Amino acid sequence: MSAPESSSSLSRFDVIVIGAGPVGLSAVFQCGMLRLRCAVVDALDAPGGQLTALYPEKPIYDIPGFPAIAAGDLVGRLLDQAAPFNPVYHFSHLVTGLERDEGTTPGLWRVRTAKGLVLEAPVVILAAGAGAFGPNRPPLADLEAYEGHSVFYSVARRETLRGKRVVIAGGGDSAVDWALSLADVAARVMVVHRRPRFRAAPETTARLEALAAQGALDLVIPYQLQALEGEGGILRSVIVADLDGARRQLDADVLLAFFGLATDLGPMAEWGLGIERHAIPVSQETCRTCRPALYAIGDVATYPGKRKLILTGFAEASAAAHNAHADCHPGEGLHFEHSTTTGVPSLG
């Protein structure tokens, strides 16, 4: 899986896609099928969004045609699918400015990044997920000294934890899923949660409790993280405490803290898009925002009945691309044809 940043000097495109997660990459393909050339801008240093940054080896089960596919593998396939259309990728570029020039036909959006990059296109598609994101960090003394060495907020490769004593803190899907995944890899898995009940899917919670009953892992409940013990970033033990303050020491090599993500729409919140509950309202039929030729798809978009699923985002990418064609080519009709008829067009 790779999509190196292009060194192309091109600055004018048909569509600028902001966000290189799975939905943004799908938009590149959908636009390419309509012969619309795309540039892709993302604040992260690699494609894939949360799939790559947080859980590349985690299996996804609701992608049509794949009974199960690793998140990183899905990103790789989406990159391969978009590759024939030669999109220009700009990674590690935070978009800071968005301006509309109606003095041309069609009108042009001008996108600026913190590094001084300027791109122009008649259409912009926002596929920025929930915006910039980072982990919610537990309030532990000297936490920074252990981060990246013994304390992690995601797992890139579960093999790196083979034979380790792993404490997993959290009660949601990520905590439960990784406990199940690591149970047969780690020397020991200990799950710390402040409540007896987990917030994960009932099926996976039942599997977790079954493994605990078999002695395959430990449920440390109801407890909360209290302190870290170690030296030089190397963890020796995790101290937890119950609601009465009684402390317990867990011998550990690694702490995985899964307390969700802190998200921030950043500059998008200042673009006059009528943000509602951390999302951008769009027309369900077109995915168009309240501003001309500006679309929002994926988790950043909202409308009545919205489901935040990757496959929903894929459908939104198709809707946005087909409506974007009219913005790029005013007055030009678009005759819809299936890919089995058109094949994969060349953009030259």
Rank of each mutant, 00 (worst) to 15 (best):
N136I: 15
E144N: 01
R162Y: 08
G129K: 14
F133I: 14
E159I: 07
R165V: 03
A128F: 01
V118M: 05
L126Q: 03
I168E: 02
H149M: 03
F152I: 06
Y146M: 06
V166G: 00
L126R: 04
A141W: 00
L143C: 08
H149Y: 00
G134W: 09
F133G: 12
A127C: 04
I168A: 10
V123K: 05
A141C: 01
V118T: 15
A156N: 05
V151W: 03
G148K: 04
V118F: 01
R157T: 14
L143D: 05
R137A: 05
E144I: 02
R137T: 06
G148W: 07
E120F: 02
V166N: 00
F133Y: 15
D142Y: 04
G134C: 07
L161N: 06
A145L: 08
V123S: 12
F152E: 04
V166R: 02
V167F: 12
K164W: 08
D142S: 13
V118Q: 11
R157C: 13
V155P: 01
A156S: 11
E159P: 05
R158Q: 02
V155F: 10
P122Y: 01
G129C: 11
E147T: 08
Y146S: 08
V151A: 10
E159W: 05
I125N: 03
A130K: 15
Y146V: 09
L117W: 00
S150T: 07
L143E: 05
L119V: 13
I125S: 08
Y153L: 00
V123D: 10
K164L: 09
A145N: 08
N136Q: 11
F152A: 05
A127P: 00
A128H: 03
V167S: 09
V155R: 06
P138F: 08
Y146F: 15
G131R: 04
P122Q: 05
P135G: 15
L143Q: 06
E159F: 00
T160S: 01
N136C: 11
R165D: 10
P138R: 12
P139C: 06
R165N: 11
V151R: 03
V123C: 12
R165L: 10
